[in-house]
Computed example of a mutant assay.
Amino acid sequence: MRIRLLASWLDRRSGSATWMRAFAEGLAARGHRVEILCLGPEDAPSPGGVEAEDFHVLTPPHFTLPGWWRFDHLRAFLSARRRIAALGLDAPDLVVASEHSLIAAHHRLFPGVPWVYLPHSAPAGAGETMAAFSADPLARALLRRLYGRAQRRAIATADAVVRFTEPAMRKMLADFPGVEARRAVVIPPAVELPEDAEPPAGQAPVRLLALGRLVRDKRVDLLIEILSHLSKDARWTLDVVGEGPERGRLEEMAASLGLEKKITFHGHKDEVAGFYRACDLFLFPSRDESLGLAPLEAMSHARPVLAFDPDAPGVQLLGGRLVEHGLTGWMARDDEDFLRILHLLITNPSPLRPTGRAARRLVAERHSWPVHLDRWEGLFDELRGDPASD
């Protein structure tokens, strides 16, 4: 099958880009011809199994006049059809699309091709997510309207809409009342399953890990504050892997609380498997997240997770209930409960080993790439055999 992916940015710094690259490689390994149209970066290597001639970087145009940068995204939408047509591509058998600026243009060029809409936007939706990247009021208003309308149209016109969890699907459809998806399909997310992953020893000192972009929503400051309340003789260390605008403030906070010798900031790392293997417990303090693949990656390495309960008040984790409390990890109801559980595990780390083993088993059963790709191929066969009418 000839499958075309419409992606945004295929670097290795975001979870959605990492997933898209792995998805392309998995499909190619199963004998599909995979074509990719993405926005960048210009020097991005094609995923394994994807031929160089099938990997196209469509760099969006930018205005050079002062102040006109506010309309760069609008220009990207308006020029998309011309940029795609210039590639001279034939129609694929099926399309999986995530990049909003390319979706409508591609559909107009290839109207008879069945396609799947796979949004990677955060809980707020595409419009609010894109608006959050700008501090300029006019740019924010334009981005909110442009991407909000694009997402509404994508939901209504796609042959199928796929999200990785039930909460994410419900939230997205609720944000667009009156818009009905032709097919709303939930395919649980996938992560690589490392070979010979051994669970943690379950002994002190407990090595903690937090991984992700250092922005306020990730709430690494909460971790630092919670850890400052532990007793002086508690035996633990925390590795923070990731980069972002909050790093300086977080380092100053750790130093002011006398924790600079226990907390290490490593910055961005392309290779993080070693950090998963070295830790005993993965901490996920975010209360507002679209998915968060890092907890699943930790569990695939037989590391248990401490996160917030998605059903708790004030928590909006669209990844859903990835952790089964007490079996594959622990879920806190609020900040005080997070501190209580963390204190218990640092004081008595023996449950970490059996819980880590159970976490890996759950990922193997529900979130491995073979299982994930089987579900996608089932959807592809359904769409090609009985495509939704236009």
Score class of each variant (00 low, 15 high):
Gly319Val: 09
Gly320Lys: 07
Ser290Trp: 01
Asp239Thr: 03
Leu293Gly: 03
Ala358Lys: 08
Leu342Asn: 04
Ala302Leu: 13
Val323Thr: 12
Thr355Ala: 06
Ala307Glu: 14
Ile226Pro: 01
Pro313Thr: 13
Glu246His: 08
Gly314Tyr: 11
Leu227Val: 08
Pro310Cys: 12
Ser290Asn: 11
Ser286Val: 03
Gly267Gln: 02
Asp309Thr: 14
Gly326Cys: 14
Leu339Cys: 09
Arg247Phe: 01
Thr264Pro: 06
Leu283Lys: 00
Leu342Phe: 04
Gly248Asp: 09
Gly329Phe: 15
Ala307Gln: 14
Leu291Ser: 10
His229Arg: 12
Asp233Thr: 02
Arg303Ile: 06
Val272His: 11
Asp233Met: 01
Phe338Gln: 05
Val305Ile: 15
Leu230Val: 13
Leu344Trp: 07
Gly258Phe: 00
Leu344Thr: 09
Ile226Gln: 02
Asp335Leu: 11
Ser290Tyr: 04
Gly292Thr: 11
Gly314Ile: 12
His268Asp: 08
Gly356Ile: 12
Leu227Tyr: 02
Ser231Ile: 09
Pro304His: 08
Ser256Leu: 03
Val323Cys: 12
Phe284Trp: 11
Arg353Thr: 10
Asp337Thr: 03
Glu246Met: 08
Val220Lys: 00
Asp334Ser: 13
Gly274Tyr: 07
Ser256Gln: 06
His229Trp: 05
Pro351Ser: 14
Lys232Ser: 13
Gly258Ser: 01
Pro295Asn: 10
Pro349Val: 03
Leu238Thr: 01
Glu324Lys: 06
Ser231Glu: 10
Glu225Val: 04
Lys232Arg: 14
Phe338Thr: 15
Glu365Cys: 15
Pro295Tyr: 09
Leu322Asp: 05
Thr328Pro: 07
Asp221Trp: 00
Asp233Ala: 12
Gly274Thr: 12
Leu306Pro: 02
